[in-house]
Nucleic acid binder design. Structure first.
Lengths: 241, 241
DNA sequence: ACAAAAGTGTTAGGCCTACACCCATGA
DNA sequence: TCATGGGTGTAGGCCTAACACTTTTGT
């Protein structure tokens, strides 16, 4: 962060922060990465000390190229998770007077999808934790609202974006994919129709891992066909459900 | 605005502005409201003096409840257009270092749809002007980019929102509605299919204005059935095109 | 042995798309 | 009278949704 000192303006300026809702999928349900705010009395930074919050922090006016950069920097510092700006989607701005008790703070909320299995071990640093959606504690500031809004956004985006790509491991099964959609949208699909539709899009390629497969009890493995997906997306499509 | 003085912070703070892309429909094409930036040397406010820009301005840290309030306040001051916060949709945040030559300025872009016919006369105040999309001058700051982004957003939103409600007068004709969709999406539709689909949704009610209508040369008049629309929207629908 | 998980194909109905003619008005 | 604009209906194709049985594994 820029060094502490005296910064003088002719008119009052707000502080700006970036927050990030990081979603992961543990194979069963969607989880969200939360951090525990430091209890230490660090002067003015102790608002909502000890409470859970979305990862995020103050814009470094002199160094952060955009607020998205703020978000990834804070994410790295607070949770050791290394994302890049293109992994983030902007959700919206929260600017109500009084949303931060210290001073006027405007935050820009983002969200990101990560392959939980692959980052899991990196992120137990410090005080970050993956919470199941059904189990979210009450959050600092207006972060409850931000999380709710972001969830609706995710539900909408899932129709247009390859959510599966980003939340599932490289190789996955159809039941996993279906379960992912079902848990985000909170609905149930017919197995056969789901498979038909997915195969029809032509964005899945079967992975032959050698195992002979006698029965059908063990699901087939697939991988996303990124090329086909990109081609499809370019022509403007949507995954219907 | 808050009174001028000396405002001191321990860390540098950015300035925050809100901008607004106001779309209107003149019965033929979509237009955008632009303002001409003051030429007068008002100290630091003279960036891009004399150029066209989106209406907008600085957040009043002490008085604007949210950045959306900033947008409607500035809109009123600069163009005499009176909108309310619920008329605005947030498009996104623009925060690149250097996007404003004066200091670090982060802007939150919004858009609004207005019934051009009904506000037209109020807005010729000062230096505001409605520009056809095919005729946009080059704009101050990164406002070109903001406008482009907002247009794509509008094209997306049109599938989910009752754009017609907000851009057309109370009473309108099917050809008008079709032309509106066609000019936003830059495509052409089959007249019969368009009419079938629209009527099928059940959100149009025919307006009987007494005229006997011999031929079919004069189009029928309709009004949106807001109740039906809201009901439809609540169950989650989308206008397909 | 029984319950749970996964693979697979067909049919009916609805929605989208393509398409042509008639009438009235204004030039 | 001719061109333009606007209203109207239908048939075919595609996509969606509903639906049952078999196999295997684990308990």
């Amino acid at each position: 962060m820029a060094k502490k000192g005296q910064y003088i303006y002719e008119y009052p300026h707000p502080a700006v922060t970036a927050d990030c809702v990081v979603f992961g999928y543990d194979g069963k349900e969607i989880r969200v990465l939360l951090i525990k705010r430091g209890k230490e009395k660090e002067a003015s930074t102790s608002a909502y000390a000890g409470e859970w919050a979305l990862p995020g922090g103050f814009l470094d006016v002199e160094r952060d190229l955009t607020v998205a950069h703020t978000a990834i920097r804070e994410l790295r510092e607070e949770t050791l998770l290394r994302l890049s700006v293109k992994d983030l989607k902007e959700v919206g701005t929260y600017s109500e007077i009084g949303r931060d008790p210290r001073e006027r703070v405007i935050t820009v909320a983002h969200y990101a999808l990560v392959k939980l299995a692959e980052v899991h071990s990196d992120t137990d640093a410090e005080k970050a934790e993956w919470y199941s959606l059904s189990d979210i504690p009450s959050l600092a500031f207006d972060h409850d609202r931000i999380l709710r809004d972001t969830l609706s956004r995710l539900k909408r985006d899932i129709h247009f974006e390859p959510i599966g790509f980003e939340l599932l491991p490289e190789v996955f099964t159809l039941p996993q994919l279906q379960n992912l959609y079902e848990s985000i949208l909170e609905v149930k699909f017919d197995r056969r129709n789901f498979a038909n539709k997915m195969k029809h899009y032509g964005i899945l390629s079967e992975v032959d891992d050698g195992t002979p497969r006698h029965g059908t009890r063990t699901p087939l493995k697939y991988r996303f066909d990124k090329d086909n997906y990109d081609r499809l997306k370019a022509k403007g499509f949507q995954l219907e459900f």
